[in-house]
């Protein structure tokens, strides 16, 4: 699969558990700054902002600067795309195949 950022779609964005947690956290709050999001994870702010960047690329998250911090907000509209059964399976297979790709890379 290509790593081209433009091809990074909503399925890939939500295939990762950390990103699903970010979506959940943002769904429960109106807007959150990076440090509050980072506090929820066992990883540094750089790692968390990388995940947020992927969500942003997929149009799932909106970011705005306020003073020195970036605040994040959920944009749920693209999730509507995955509401039906066929789309859910597409998402499922994309997630599984990326797992398979990692597996094959490891075994090289």
């Amino acid at each position: 699969m290509s790593n081209n950022h433009q091809e990074r779609d909503v399925y890939v964005a939500i295939a990762d558990p950390t990103r699903r947690t970010l979506i959940r956290l943002l769904a429960e709050a109106e807007e959150l700054p990076l440090h509050e999001l980072t506090a929820q994870f066992d990883m540094g702010r750089t790692a968390v902002s990388k995940h947020l960047a992927i969500l942003k690329d997929a149009g799932l998250v909106l970011a705005r600067k306020e003073g020195r911090e970036t605040r994040y907000r959920l944009n749920a509209a693209p999730l509507k795309e995955i509401q039906d059964w066929v789309s859910l399976y597409e998402g499922f297979w994309k997630e599984r195949i990326s797992k398979l790709q990692l597996l094959l890379e490891e075994n090289k």
């Binding site: 939500i14 558990p17 699903r20 947690t21 979506i23 959940r24 769904a27 429960e28 995955i82 859910l88 399976y89 998402g91 499922f92 997630e95």
Partner: peptide, 10 residues
């Protein structure tokens, strides 16, 4: 929803 179990009710 099985594919997105973690998202569940959210």
């Amino acid at each position: 929803k099985y594919a997105w179990t973690n998202m569940g009710a959210q």
